[in-house]
Simulated assay, not measured.
Amino acid sequence: MSEPYIRTALPDDDEELGALDRATWSRLHAVVPKAQPPYAPFFDDKHVPGDFLVAELDRRIVGYIRLVPATSLVCNAHVRQIQGLAVGEAARGHGVGRALIRAAITEARRQGARRITLRVLGHNTPARKLYEAEGFAVEGVLPEEFLLDGEYVDDVLMGRSL
């Protein structure tokens, strides 16, 4: 498999990203119920194309990462937050997630950020290991923050300096 091509999402990516998002839905990372038809658009007022970097292989979108300001506060403008990372099943294990994280770090720096943060479910060991390998450290844990399928799951806060 070749290296993924990373680019900013375009409005025309809506349908393909929506399909990828539904295909990658899992209780390992999702706290909302699985989407059911009729499907809402992937992009909306709070989720605009410019917030997403997409990974392409052979001109097909195989992953995405969402990078946004952590809050709307001026005093927090130096922090970016990853709020979503997905990689299609066929592309997993080929460096797509790692390439997306690295691209998000580069983009956060380009935007003038000094820190990047994220939240990940405590039981999502593959994601946590990937983030740790890319320099993120656990900075806090909200114990039993979510009740998912009858199990309490921690919300793990991770971050790193840029």
Rank of each mutant, 00 (worst) to 15 (best):
153 V>Y: 05
133 A>Q: 12
40 A>P: 10
144 E>Q: 09
6 I>A: 05
42 F>D: 07
72 S>F: 08
109 R>H: 08
50 G>V: 01
118 L>Y: 03
51 D>P: 00
63 G>T: 06
97 G>Y: 01
46 K>Q: 15
43 F>H: 11
79 V>S: 07
97 G>H: 03
117 T>D: 13
107 E>D: 13
11 P>K: 07
36 Q>M: 13
67 L>N: 06
57 L>D: 00
153 V>M: 10
54 V>A: 07
18 G>S: 09
105 I>K: 06
84 G>L: 07
141 V>F: 01
138 V>K: 02
85 L>Y: 01
99 A>N: 02
139 E>V: 01
118 L>S: 07
25 W>C: 04
13 D>T: 09
23 A>G: 06
90 A>K: 15
59 R>L: 12
70 A>E: 14
134 E>I: 11
162 L>Y: 05
19 A>P: 00
51 D>L: 12
128 R>T: 07
61 I>M: 04
160 R>I: 05
35 A>W: 11
93 G>W: 09
139 E>Y: 02
161 S>E: 15
36 Q>D: 09
105 I>W: 02
135 G>C: 06
81 Q>I: 02
136 F>L: 05
94 H>S: 12
104 A>K: 07
131 Y>E: 02
12 D>K: 15
131 Y>A: 03
41 P>Q: 09
49 P>I: 05
129 K>P: 00
91 A>Y: 01
127 A>N: 09
148 L>C: 10
157 L>A: 11
141 V>E: 05
151 E>Y: 01
81 Q>L: 00
82 I>H: 06
25 W>G: 07
147 L>G: 00
83 Q>H: 08
101 I>K: 02
112 G>D: 10
117 T>I: 12
102 R>C: 11
69 P>D: 10
11 P>C: 04
1 M>Q: 13
1 M>S: 15
29 H>E: 13
19 A>T: 12
120 V>I: 08
136 F>D: 04
143 P>T: 06
44 D>I: 08
27 R>Y: 13
72 S>P: 00
1 M>G: 15
122 G>P: 08
155 D>Y: 00
100 L>C: 04
117 T>K: 05
81 Q>R: 13
6 I>H: 00
23 A>C: 01
88 G>I: 02
134 E>M: 10
123 H>Y: 04
17 L>Y: 06
104 A>R: 04
148 L>V: 12
155 D>C: 10
87 V>E: 05
50 G>I: 00
77 A>H: 12
14 D>H: 10
146 F>L: 05
25 W>F: 09
56 E>N: 02
19 A>L: 11
18 G>D: 02
70 A>P: 00
124 N>Y: 03
6 I>K: 05
14 D>A: 11
152 Y>C: 13
107 E>W: 12
97 G>A: 09
54 V>T: 10
64 Y>W: 12
79 V>F: 01
103 A>T: 00
101 I>H: 06
122 G>I: 07
120 V>T: 12
